[in-house]
C-alpha cells in the first residue's frame, strides 16, 4: 500500500510567557491509503497538536515547527504558504472537530456551510452544490434533507450536528480525514452510529482516516493501526491486534489495565500513578520513567529509541533492549498476550 501522508521527525514548540513548551518532540509516522490510524494518549500528549500541524491550523504567532517534514503526496506541507494550504485544506485533507456544538457557524444555514467547500474548491454552480449537499446529507443519514438544509445548527441535536460536520468534511471526497475525538461529546448509542457511518463511508470513498481519541474501546472498533503518544512522542505503534494483545511499552500496559473489563469485577482498578510530564521542562530520559514502576536507571538518563518488535510493531522502551532484564507485565496484560498467542 502506498503512503498518502508521512510525518518525519516533527518537532513543535509553543512560546509562552513561562518559556518554550516542547509539545511535539520528534514524531514519525506514515498513513497508508485507505487505512485508519488511531492516535491515543492523554490530554497534553500532543495528539491534537500533531494533527493541527498537518492542517496548518496552529496559531501562527506563538507556535513554531522547529524541525521535520509533513509529506502529503510528496509535497512538504510545512513549507506551504497560507494561500497554497487553503487549496488543500478542506479538499484533500479535511477535519472533524471534537465539539459539534462549536464547530458549526450558528449564523449560517447548514446548507450554506456544506456548499461552501464545494463552491470554493470544485467551482460548482449553486444549483449543483445544493444537489450535492442533499446527497451528502442523505449519505450521513439525516432524514428529510430538503427541509433540514435550510435550517440553522441550533435546530439540530448533538449527534445530528456531528453528522453535518462529517458531511462538510466529506464534501470534496478528501484523501485524508482527520477526526479529532469526533465522538467524545456524544452518547454511546449515537457514538456507535457515527462510528458505523465513518467506516461505511471509508469503504465507499477510500479515505484514509487519522482518528484521535482516548477511548480504547473506540480504537478497538475503528482502527487498523494504533499509535500511542506520551509526552510529545509516539512511544508505541503497531497494528490494532499487536497493540491490544501484545503491548510492549509500560505506558500502554498501564492504559490497558486501567480500563475496567466488563466480564471481571476486579478488586482495585490499576491507576497509573502521578501526572503527565510538564513539557516546559521535558524530562531527560524516557518521559514516562517517573510514573513507571518498571523504570531502570537508563530510563532516567537516556531516551529509548524505537525498538522493532515486528515489521509493523515498534515501541520505545529500554525493556526491549537485548540486555534488559525480563519483566512480568501486569496481570491484565498477560491475559491479553495469552489470548494473542492463542489466536495465532
Amino acid at each position: 500500500m502506498t503512503n498518502i501522508l508521512e510525518v518525519k521527525d516533527l518537532n513543535i514548540s509553543f512560546h509562552t510567557f513561562a518559556g518554550e513548551v516542547k509539545a511535539i518532540r520528534g514524531v514519525n509516522f506514515e498513513l497508508k491509503k485507505g487505512e485508519t490510524l488511531a492516535i491515543v494518549g492523554e490530554s497534553g500528549s500532543g495528539k491534537s497538536v500533531t494533527t493541527k500541524a498537518i492542517m496548518k491550523l496552529l496559531p501562527p504567532n506563538n507556535s513554531e515547527i522547529k524541525k521535520g517534514q509533513i509529506l502529503f503526496d510528496g509535497k512538504d506541507l510545512t513549507n506551504l504558504t497560507d494561500r497554497q494550504m487553503q487549496k488543500i485544506r478542506g479538499k484533500d485533507i479535511s477535519m472533524i472537530f471534537q465539539d459539534p456544538m462549536t464547530s458549526l457557524n450558528p449564523t449560517m444555514t447548514i446548507g450554506k456551510q456544506i456548499m461552501e467547500p464545494l463552491i470554493r474548491h470544485q467551482n460548482m454552480s449553486k444549483a449543483a452544490a445544493t444537489e450535492r449537499s442533499l446527497q451528502l446529507l442523505r449519505l450521513v443519514g439525516i432524514p428529510k434533507p430538503e427541509q433540514r438544509i435550510k435550517q440553522y445548527p441550533h435546530q439540530f441535536s448533538g449527534g445530528m450536528r456531528q453528522r453535518v460536520v462529517i458531511a462538510i468534511a466529506l464534501a470534496c471526497n478528501p484523501k485524508v480525514l482527520i477526526a479529532d475525538e469526533p465522538t467524545t461529546a456524544l452518547d454511546v448509542t449515537i457514538q456507535a452510529q457515527i462510528l458505523e457511518l465513518m467506516k461505511d463511508l471509508q469503504n465507499k470513498i477510500e479515505t484514509s482516516i487519522i482518528f484521535i481519541t482516548h477511548d480504547l474501546g473506540v480504537v478497538a472498533n475503528v482502527a487498523d493501526r494504533v499509535a500511542v503518544m506520551y509526552g510529545g512522542k509516539i512511544i508505541e505503534i503497531g497494528t490494532v491486534d499487536e497493540v491490544f494483545y501484545n503491548p510492549q511499552h509500560p505506558y500502554t500496559w498501564g492504559l490497558i489495565s486501567s480500563m475496567p473489563s466488563l466480564d471481571a469485577r476486579d478488586e482495585e482498578l490499576y491507576a497509573i500513578p502521578g501526572t503527565p510530564p510538564n513539557l516546559l521542562h521535558p524530562p531527560k530520559g524516557d518521559a514516562f520513567a517517573p510514573r513507571n514502576e518498571y523504570a531502570m536507571q537508563i530510563d532516567l538518563e537516556e531516551e529509548p529509541p524505537m525498538f522493532k518488535v515486528s515489521d509493523t510493531h515498534y515501541a520505545a522502551t529500554w525493556l526491549l533492549h537485548p540486555d534488559a532484564p525480563k519483566v512480568e507485565p501486569p496481570a491484565a496484560v498477560v491475559k491479553r498476550m495469552q489470548k494473542f498467542s492463542g489466536t495465532k
Binding site: V188, T189, Q191, A192, L195, E196, D215, L216, G217, V218, V219, A220, N221, A223, V240, D241, F244, Y245, I256, M259, S261, L262, K339, T343
Partner: peptide
C-alpha cells in the same frame, strides 16, 4: 441496545459485535 453499543477495548470482540437498536 445500550449495552450492545459500548465499544470494548478488544479488537477481536469489536469485529464481531452486533449492535441492537431500540
Amino acid at each position: 441496545s445500550l449495552l450492545s453499543a459500548i465499544p470494548l477495548p478488544d479488537p477481536e470482540f469489536e469485529r464481531t459485535r452486533r449492535r441492537k437498536t431500540y
